[in-house]
Nucleic acid binder design. Structure first.
Lengths: 127, 127, 127, 127
DNA sequence: GTGGTCTAGACCACC
DNA sequence: GTGGTCTAGACCACA
């Protein structure tokens, strides 16, 4: 997993987002054990406390749960994950829509553009 | 104009992108004079040399041109701007498409999602 | 305000409870400004970070809100405060009920006892 | 038995209270032999001298008695136990009453609340 | 070893 | 000055 941070948002919030994304996109599978706080923190290059805060937030969201001595685990509540996935997708769609409209494209033009891009992909299926 | 920078890309490249976007989205109108390098650099909180480099790149792209004494101006070549607009939109569409596919959505689902979001907008016209 | 902490519960959680209680019992009136984090922390004898954490929790509950530079304030949502008050009272009633039942008293005996205590008060109205 | 102590009261006084409560609530039955001072102290995590002091106080109250060689025993004076029970209950009732009045509830509201809580119990008989 | 809590001290943005 | 964030390092309970 790659960890990159922007400077205009708290690191812990970005950690929440990135882990949330990793969970809903299946990079972290339901029920899987996460690395220890210390290890993940080292890997991400942040202080363990900062990562701890992010994980607590994710726990509040129900996406992970912790077991005292065994470690932290991704939730097995696939319905919740699906719901989060929908929420993230919807947020992205909205942001994309607004950006494209700012550029002067209407919905049908955007859809056309997407279809064109999709077709280009066919010529390069491994990407 | 708001200037924000990520830490994982050269500042000058991000400046190019942001100014390019401002031009194609009409925030900088064709033929308009840009502030002085020094002023823009101050406003963006970057070193004037960095901004200078970004402007040279934009000149190379043809999006701005400089006149010896009068300063720098946005190009009046609306065809070029339109072309750039298309290029940016296409790049964004591709990035969006890939991100959504990573989340497990196929093209038709994405389009449905966009239409849903579009409709929500109608229900909230003040936004 | 007096701050006392038990050792079998996190300090930050106890801070949340004590401040919550102070708000619902009217010691902190709606809309009133709280002392700064640093001052309250000094007064309570805890680290500012610990108190900060408690206040963030209270903010999540909606009982306080913060304004960037001006400080933190008690919510003006009196309905929410009333609701919290009811919740606290209910929790206390339940704990009391269970403790008394453990001692072998049934509901009617408990009520009788309360009425007796209430009457004793009449003889000592200033307490 | 669980032993927990607050920091704002002498440990020995809290020991007295907890053992007194254990006796009147029947966790320590009349006539039962108590563990040795050393064992109880270890279990409670306190100094044996502190526990000794608590036991002396309980002897003074008549709730336990010691026999030279056989050890310490819970009193068999059930009338005394009943009296203590009443005293504890009364003290708790008073504390509860005051706390609830601080929250702005009058006696009748408190009684209503207790009845509500009692009914909830009926709806959840497994608890 | 794990998660969890706490402290101390620093820096930032905002006004 | 305010709230907010981050780091560093310590200690605890649990098993």
């Amino acid at each position: 997993m790659e960890w990159t941070f922007k400077s205009d948002q708290p690191i812990y919030a970005q950690l929440v987002e990135q882990i949330r994304l990793a969970i809903v996109s299946g990079d972290f599978v339901p029920g899987a054990r996460l690395s220890s706080v210390r290890d993940m923190a080292t890997e991400a290059g942040v202080n363990p406390n900062t990562l701890q805060r992010a994980l607590q937030e994710l726990e509040r969201l129900g996406l992970v749960y912790s077991q005292r001595t065994a470690g932290r685990f991704v939730t097995e509540d696939t319905a919740l994950i699906a719901q989060e996935k929908k929420a993230i997708a919807s947020a992205r769609a909205e942001a994309f829509l607004q950006a494209m409209q700012k550029l002067g494209f209407d919905l049908e033009e955007i859809i056309t553009l997407l279809r064109e891009n999709k077709e280009e992909e066919h010529g390069d299926p491994d990407m």
